[in-house]
Write a protein that binds this DNA or RNA. Sequence first.
DNA 1: TGAATAGTGTCTGTTAGACATTATCCA
DNA 2: TGGATAATGTCTAACAGACACTATTCA
Lengths: 222, 222
Amino acid sequence: MTTALASRHSMPFVRVELVILSAVGDRLSVLLGRREGPPYAGRWAVPGGVLRIDLDRDLDDAARRVCRERLRAEVPALRQVRTVGGPGRDPRAPWALSVVYRGLVAGVDAAPGKRIEALRWSPVDEIAGERLAFDHAQLVAESAARLREEVERLELPFDALPPAFTLTELQSHCETLLGRALDKSSFRRRVDDRELLEPVIGEMRTGAYRPAQLYRARKEKG
Amino acid sequence: MTTALASRHSMPFVRVELVILSAVGDRLSVLLGRREGPPYAGRWAVPGGVLRIDLDRDLDDAARRVCRERLRAEVPALRQVRTVGGPGRDPRAPWALSVVYRGLVAGVDAAPGKRIEALRWSPVDEIAGERLAFDHAQLVAESAARLREEVERLELPFDALPPAFTLTELQSHCETLLGRALDKSSFRRRVDDRELLEPVIGEMRTGAYRPAQLYRARKEKG
DNA sequence: TGAATAGTGTCTGTTAGACATTATCCA
DNA sequence: TGGATAATGTCTAACAGACACTATTCA
């Protein structure tokens, strides 16, 4: 054994998989695409794509490109979850490695892109019965768990919120992501103590009944 | 564009890097190896190796193999930290992807393995001045930060502890990993509340002065 | 005025840090 | 007996959940 050059060993099939999450109705849901061709043709899977070393400057960049190509959408807040790999994960290659990213979006503004027949939102708590292609059920479960941990720690989902929002809207959104109710007083106190928000002075949401103060994320905070 | 086969696109150079941490003296330190050959010959770096799709059944398996080959040691508690990639990371390849694992060990039982001239422990809080090869300084910083978060949450470093230990030894070890002092009473109460340990009945550490109860990790806990 | 939503106040239990105190061993 | 270490107890502050209460708007 001497020097290990890049060319001495076969390299794995490297992909990026996107677990795009959103609050749909009142459930945390994941964006699934129906696979147009084999393998697993007709089955639902998380969108993903091959790493392109001629195009991608790093992994975050690869995730953004795959997002544009598959979903025709820009998704901020793409975060790496983890990397899985092994033989038998993907019949197209003897050894497949996938870097998993999760995204969080507000609306359903994606359109089926390359090699995706249809898109659909599915509640993450029902993916066990979805029979997703590959090992995607596990990837979705892990990504959703990670997101929920972040929201529990009050890392607020600003990327999935409008530029200005009321505290009730913020709380309601967090409740949907977490899948559980939050206490209003406690929630407001915790948000306030951490100085995560600043009021948009003068601006109020004037819907039915009493108007509500609008807030936005403080830039210096997460 | 049609089907993306594994062979249609060039794949990156895929490696596994090992950030092996340990409490050396009273400082959290990282195991560095001096590079025998180019690139960065003579510079210090974290040990790592190329993914072998003919040998490795998954990424955890690859990390264990690289650990055996480079360090001639078995390291339990190898955990994936994150994956980095991009052009320019490694002059041996146009695009290099590294899956970073961190390990935690008790003693310095490793010996220089393949393609490593010498091994050395360096305090993680001084890596800024070490001028490590590649982007390894950042990888070490991230791995140490993640370990410290876990210890703060009282995910105890059982893999770096003897089978039985006193509470003082456990606390002292955690203090070294964290780089800060912990309150004895509070530490014991927190450990106790979580039911992480069980006493080794009858067994005491009988050093100087008052003997101390020995404990071991409860199997059902982390 | 009453329904609906926005916003605040109070109580309580849990947790953990700070620090004192007791317990047990050896020289 | 005194020094050193082990183990426990007490006080307090911070924090968050539960829940009641006030405030403001519209029909």
